[in-house]
Structure formats: structure tokens, C-alpha cells
Design a binder for these strands. Structure first.
Lengths: 343, 343
DNA sequence: GCTCCCGCTTGGAACGATCAAGACCTCGGG
DNA sequence: CCCGAGGTCTTGATCGTTCCAAGCGGGAGC
């Protein structure tokens, strides 16, 4: 039954086909695939040859049915906000796909309809389509975590359980405060003393976290933060306006921003006023987006270790799905700083 | 058996459970789910009530095993080049997830290991894990299409079969030439007559296609293209150097670029020389990336209708998977132009 | 020589759905 | 009165895999 070029077998070979060819029983073939140790060496070789010859791969559906697991990890892709955060999520997805692949899993993407974010989870869970979830949008008031826990659905969240410090589920997050602290220290080291902050509105936990890093670094050197901070929407224009006001009222020599989008707004203001980013006024953004890399003169930006985050998430998933489940503590990763012309 | 708060049923209800509760047979429940027309109205209601009460969803694995289909669509995420093209793919993935969801499918992401791109396809195909594939990287010499066709694996490609005009598989693509033609005409309408091209090296079909649109628009008005084109790598620096040379040698008043990355290079050169983008020299990019939206003074850019493309891809998939398969012709979509300050 | 145990293999029975075919009832026509 | 048709629902078999418990042969121990 060697492969004939141009002729493709109509039906995929099954365990029974392999067993017959190798002259053993179905179970022996199954063991050869799942528990090779149980077989005598020569039998194993014979079975493996047969598998090779037929081009056999276990039927996923049958295996899933029997073992009650799909080796799929579900992740909800929240419908498109065209923002910086989105690009970061995409980078994370890339890393996640790569890492899960190495662990023998695949990533299944879905999006619940907008008005009921839980719908997608519910469907997949009840139909046992996925083994676990990766949850990414852990903003305030998002009921996913609590809901999933109540259903005893295994999941790992990328993002801290901000609104529930006692949450018991595993999570991985990037220490935003450490990132902005790094950025602020970098500016302090360059001799800046009047460093302004432009961040998000107060209801964003992530925004307040990032702001805390900036303020911590300043207070460490006994520098005041009063009047040096502005909290706005995450748009270029907001960043532009906020930085214009701050320049007039607080006269900072540097800006740290909660996002590259806001930092771009600062760059616009500087250009409006004939100021040179980097030379006259320093600017640091957050997320190391493509924008930061290609804009003139290069935007220094905090880079989240998303590849590493994906690895940790998958590790946590493997722990959750092990028998018995091993559930570790939350993991906080430290970002790095990509230094470019703007500082 | 109403749902008791805090208490979650350990095992998911099965068809048999519903059947018992409704006082009918398994098959009748199955029909209620898949062929409601076959049931008498009152029976249907009774069964649906039972389904509702138990919170029943068909077990995906069992259904997949029996019907030999998974309702999953596989897509290979090519390992991260951090380029513009990547962001476009991500946008496409978002749209694809949304559209497949509406069609009752889910998207499964994978990435074969780098040295053997076919490996991932092969595994999924032989284990019948997905019903079909969406292929995105149709660059020259990529063996995926031919390989998949040989295996009789259903797939739709996003991207034309450049190297094989007789290919019979369904595909969807964006008319790059129409996009650059649109961009060039836009500049012509603004009064520009010396319009330069910065594109990719000649071995890129996509690059040559986009270039053709530029040259077509110019020739239509009897304007010469000689000496007005440059073909380089897709990096900011290449765009910067190429535009500097062109400005010196060909004295264009406008640039059309094969990517936003290259266009950013042009903007750098203009800034280097104290020229104002939009006012002194016009620039148009391609892909309408985030960069184009936030850079100063806004980069006019060709925007691919990726949402529409995803819809067409899913349509084609549904046709392929129908009984009997309906396979339509290739579909070419026309991009639009997002006009901003740079022109 | 018998039992016991170990290592490997075996057939049978799930997993939960759909397919194919048959049973039952009603109704209309001959 | 009988028959066939059609609508409605039920029964048995099946998809391909893994789990379970038993089978089988050989070597060690008594």
C-alpha cells in the first residue's frame, strides 16, 4: 500500500488499517502512539513502519470524543477597536499560536456577538469544543472571569484580575508600572527633572497602574508630580491637546505616555511649535508599536514581553489541564525599553 | 432539573438525557436540532423546552466523528515578520473570525515549523481536524496551493495564484494595480505631473502588480515613467534613500509607494530637506496602516477592503463545502483611497 | 510440577452523535 | 374492506478512538 503518485486514497487510514498491516491489534497501535513504552522494541518498530507507510494520523474527532478533550484553546477576539491595544493583542496572538503549537495545542478564535460577550464562551464550553480559554480583556466589570470560574472552565487570563485581588485563577500580566518607571528613570538619567505624564482616564486600571510607575520614579528623587499629569482619551488628538496645555502650564522637558498613540500626539504638538523631539523635548511611549519604530526620529517606547507572556500562559494552561491540576500563582513580567531618537 | 445557583452539573447533558426528559427517542431530538421540519409542531416545542431546561448543546466531538466534518477552518499564521503586510493580515484575521462565526464556523490558527510550511497542513488534514483551509501567503514558489489541490483538500486562497493562471481553486484578492492607479489619478487630479514610484524588488508579483497601476495611470495621460521608478527592499531606510535619489535625479512633485513603510521613508527624506509633505511634495502609501493614520500630517494611503475580502472568502468556503461543491471564479476587489494631509 | 506474577496483547464496550431503515398511524382511493 | 402513500417517530448500526478487564505465555519461586 505504498503511496501512488497522483492517486490519493479516498478514505483516511484508521487504527484498524494500521493494525492489520502490522499484524497486531488496534490497542497495540494505540499504545504505540500514546504509550510507546508499553511495547516491545521490535513490535514498536513494526507498528511505526506501518503508520509511516499508510500515512496514518489519529482521527481527532474520535480521539476527542473518547478522551473528552480537544487539544484546542479558545480565545475571544474582541471586535475591532482600531487602537494600539489591538496591535499588541495581535502580537500576543502570534506568539500564542507559536507556543501552543509546540505544546501540542491549537488556538481557536471566536468572537461572541457584541452585546453578549459570554455567548461565545458558553457555546464552546457546552459543546466541549475547547479544553480551556485564554482571556485577554480583563477590564473592570468584565464578567468573564467570574462566569468561567463558576462553570469550572479552565482558563488563564492575560491581564490581572484588577477588580478582584483574591481571584484564584492563574494569570499572566506585564508590569505596566515597572515599564513607565523604567521609562521615567531613563529620562531622569538623561538629566530631565520636569517629566510630565499623559495617560488614560481614571477608570482604567491599566492606565492608573502605568501612571503609578511614573509617579514612583519621580517621588524616589523627591520631584513633584503636581500639575504634571493629564488624563485623556486614547487618541492622537487628545495627546496633542494635553501636551500643548502641559507645555504651557507646567513647562516639562519630557513626556511619558500611557500609549504610543498619545505619544504621537505629543510629537505633533512639538512639530507644531518647531520643537525637536529628542533634542528639545524628550518623549516616551508605550507598546513599541510599529508607529514607534518608523516615525521620525524614532519613538522611545516601553516594550511588553509578549512572546514571554505567551509562553507563561501556555505553561499555566498545561498546569491547569494536567492530572491533577497544578495551579500556580499569578505571574508579573517586566517590560523593557526600546530607546530611539525621541529621548 | 432546573439550574441550581452555585451548583454546576458535573457532566454535560447528552442527546439521550434530552430524549428522556422530553419523552421521545434520541433521533427525534437530533432531528429537532438539525431538521426541525420533520417534527410535528407540538413535539418540536416539547423537545425544545427540554433542550432549554437542560442547557443542552450537541457534543462537538461526537458530531464531528459522525459527520466527518469539524466546522473548523484552518489558517496558517506565518511566523512574525514585523512588517506592514503583517498588520494587514491581522486585520484580515479579525474580519475572518467575525465572518466565519456568522457562518457557523470557527477559525483554527496554526503555524507549521519554519523549515517545512506544509507540515502543519499535513497534520491537520490527515487527522481531519479542519474542514478547509484559508491560505494567505501565495507568494511565488509557495507550494501550498498545488500540494493542497493534490490532496483534494478544500481551500480558498486570499491572494491570486500568481504563478499559475490556470489554477482552479477559488481565490479572493485585492486589485493592487487598481489601488495604485486610484492613488496616481488622485495625484494627477491635484495637478501633479511628475509622479515617482517606489516599490519592491522585481521578484514580487504583488509589487509588480501595484507598479502597473501607477504606470497605467501615467501612460493614460501620455506622461513618461522613465527614470521615475525605484525598486527596493520594504524598509523605511530603503524608502528614504530611494526618494532622496529620485528627488535629485527626476525631480518628482509626488510619490506613490508600494507600502506605508516605504512612504514613511519618503516622509523622512522630505523632513531631512525641510520640505513639507502635502504642501511641497505629495506622498501616497499603501495599506492604510496605523502608521498612516497617526503620522504627521496624515499619510494618504490605499486601503484594502479586508472586511469584504473575508466575507468573500467565507462565501467561497461555504460553496466549496456544500453538496455538491459550488466553485466560483476568482474574485478581485477594488481598494479605496484614504486621503490625508500628505497629498 | 504447580502457582504466581510480570509483560505484552486481545476482544469488547464505551464516548455521543447521525444515518439508514423499519414501525406505527392516519387517510384517501379503489 | 383492503391497499398504498405519506407523515411521524423509533430502533439498531456506525463513525474511530481509548478504556477496561481478561487472556496468554514464560520465568521465578516453592
Amino acid at each position: 500500500m505504498s503511496r501512488i503518485p497522483g492517486r490519493v486514497p479516498t478514505a483516511a487510514p484508521t487504527l484498524a488499517d494500521v493494525a492489520e498491516l502490522a499484524g497486531v491489534s488496534r490497542q497495540t497501535v494505540s499504545n504505540a502512539v500514546n504509550n510507546p513504552d508499553l511495547l516491545r522494541a521490535d513490535t514498536l518498530v513494526r507498528v511505526q513502519d506501518a503508520i509511516e507507510e499508510l500515512g496514518y494520523s489519529p482521527n481527532r474527532a474520535a480521539r476527542n470524543l473518547r478522551t473528552r478533550s480537544s487539544h484546542l484553546v479558545g480565545m475571544r477576539l474582541s471586535p475591532g477597536q482600531e487602537f494600539t491595544a489591538n496591535a499588541a493583542i495581535d502580537r500576543f496572538v502570534h506568539s500564542l499560536v507559536e507556543t501552543t503549537g509546540e505544546a501540542g495545542y491549537h488556538v481557536l478564535l471566536f468572537n461572541g456577538d457584541g452585546n453578549d460577550p459570554l455567548r461565545g464562551y458558553d457555546d464552546l464550553l457546552r459543546s466541549t469544543a475547547v479544553d480551556a480559554f485564554v482571556v485577554t480583556d480583563t477590564y473592570l466589570g468584565n464578567p468573564q472571569a467570574a462566569w468561567l470560574r463558576e462553570r469550572r472552565a479552565p482558563f488563564v487570563s492575560f491581564g490581572r484580575p484588577w477588580d478582584d485581588p483574591d481571584a484564584t485563577h492563574p494569570w499572566v500580566d506585564v508590569d505596566g508600572a515597572a515599564g513607565t518607571e523604567l521609562a521615567t528613570r531613563h529620562l531622569l538619567d538623561k538629566g530631565h527633572e520636569r517629566i510630565a505624564w499623559i495617560g488614560w482616564r481614571k477608570d482604567s486600571f491599566i492606565g492608573e497602574d502605568r501612571r503609578a510607575g511614573w509617579s514612583r520614579a519621580l517621588k524616589e528623587r523627591d520631584l513633584s508630580t503636581t500639575g504634571m499629569a493629564s488624563r485623556v482619551e486614547d487618541t492622537v488628538n487628545s495627546g496633542r491637546e494635553a501636551s500643548a496645555v502641559l507645555l504651557d502650564e507646567a513647562r516639562p522637558s519630557a513626556f511619558v505616555c500611557a500609549s504610543d498613540t498619545l505619544a504621537m500626539g505629543v510629537l505633533h504638538t512639538l512639530a507644531d511649535r518647531g520643537l525637536r523631539a529628542g533634542a528639545d523635548i524628550a518623549v516616551v511611549g508605550f507598546d513599541d508599536s510599529q508607529v514607534a519604530q518608523v516615525v521620525r526620529p524614532g519613538l522611545t517606547s516601553v516594550r511588553q514581553p509578549l512572546e514571554d507572556a505567551a509562553i507563561r500562559v501556555v505553561n499555566a494552561l498545561e498546569g491547569l489541564l494536567a492530572h491533577p491540576p497544578r495551579v500556580g500563582p499569578g505571574i508579573l513580567l517586566t517590560p523593557t525599553l526600546a530607546v530611539r531618537g525621541s529621548s
